[in-house]
Write a protein that binds this DNA or RNA. Structure first.
Lengths: 219, 219
DNA sequence: ACCTGATTTAATTTTGAAATTATAGCAAAA
DNA sequence: TTTTGCTATAATTTCAAAATTAAATCAGGT
């Protein structure tokens, strides 16, 4: 763990959100032990509250739980990265296809807006040559774009599942934070997805989604 | 809740399994309140242990949780049934396709065996004109068949997600228990899926999976 | 030196009760 | 009769400590 936050008392949902944020931004090392006692002191609550939060995070796939042996930040592996990528491709392709089928002009507008934002941030990254100073902004905007893409699919299950996969995916990608070349390539890919989606060109959209997501496994 | 089980003390995993079983076999009514106090007495443990188990079941999608308002057996609805069905079709089609791609002779053998079992039980149902006396057997065999079908997909994520969806799907299907016509139609459909899978005929397998699962929404 | 087993230490898990919050019942006013 | 507010009841949620279990330390033997 990197920084110790406020020592003030927090409600259970706030603790969940804070730990969730720390996990997907990899402020815990892969496989790092998450001790009840430490977290209890950090958040100023009882061990039981921490336990409950960690349980929820474990079913969200960000934390590994072993009986009588506590909680750890989820470990990464080549196999798991591959699995997450392939599954994310499946869900995003299906979600985008359904959105293209059901989405109205409102959906198109929201998608354009989301693309405008992420595109603007990525242009800044290209100019600055680094992403660190806008990483949190970029991270939110990237999520917004992909979530908006599938937001008209009319399947709550698909959308919820996609979010859990997306979060686990993010958790693996920390080492990429300073490699701004990664973000630069996103600019073209996001535009390709946007244009295919607006044109309701399903095969093209599927292809660009696959290309965009699969590139994450190349190193 | 229908029957009160043993009053003896149970370990947390045993409580989870028992409640899971009761939920997917709909021994709780849809939307029925799950009171900590009652369950605590039933299983001879503290309210906190019950809380922990219900939390796990809520992230498995079988129980609905509302802050400050406790737990309920998940409600059903036409929309949710449709969503579950469509999502299950997506996952099972993808899982079967991948299994056909990666599966070896061992997978074929396991699939044949699983089909033999479910087929045998469904023949019995046809002869007897009712399913109630073998419902538990049938339920396990049906799961075995579908799980084996996707078992060679080489994606733990896909397989785990499929299980959670399958369980939620089961939870909705209780009223069907005495309608044995439903089970009779399964015989042909399971065979069609088996044969397409063994022939590695992906389009045909996808079609039969869709037909088999979609039929559940017709009433 | 290395393995084995007992003891100490540190962690997780369960408990029972206190604190908090929602729900139901009831009375008074519109 | 309906609504509003208060009270009593019942439920959920949090807590601190006890009980349980795993991990680490150390001593004795091979």
């Amino acid at each position: 763990m990197t920084d110790t936050p406020t020592r003030s008392k927090m409600e259970t949902p706030a603790i969940y959100d804070d730990l969730h944020r720390k996990l997907v931004t990899a402020q815990f090392g892969h496989g790092e032990k998450l001790k009840s006692e430490e977290l209890r002191q950090t958040y100023g609550c009882s061990a039981n509250t921490i336990r409950e939060v960690l349980f929820r995070l474990s079913t969200a796939g960000l934390v590994a739980f072993e009986e009588q042996r506590g909680f750890r930040a989820r470990r990464t592996s080549k196999e798991r990265q591959h699995d997450l990528t392939q599954f994310r491709i499946l869900l995003e392709q299906e979600g985008a296809s359904l959105s293209m089928k059901h989405g109205d002009i409102e959906w198109e507008a929201r998608l354009s807006a989301a693309h405008h934002k992420i595109s603007h941030i990525e242009s800044e990254v290209r100019r600055a040559g680094t992403v660190v100073h806008v990483l949190a902004l970029w991270s939110n905007a990237e999520w917004e774009f992909h979530d908006t893409l599938i937001s008209a699919c009319q399947s709550p299950l698909l959308r919820e599942t996609y979010k859990t996969i997306y979060d686990q995916f993010r958790q693996q990608l920390v080492s990429r934070d300073t490699n701004y070349g990664y973000y630069i390539e996103n600019i073209e890919e996001h535009r390709a997805i946007l244009e295919a989606a607006l044109a309701r060109d399903e095969p093209s959209c599927r292809k660009h989604i696959r290309d965009h997501l699969a590139r994450n496994m190349l190193n």
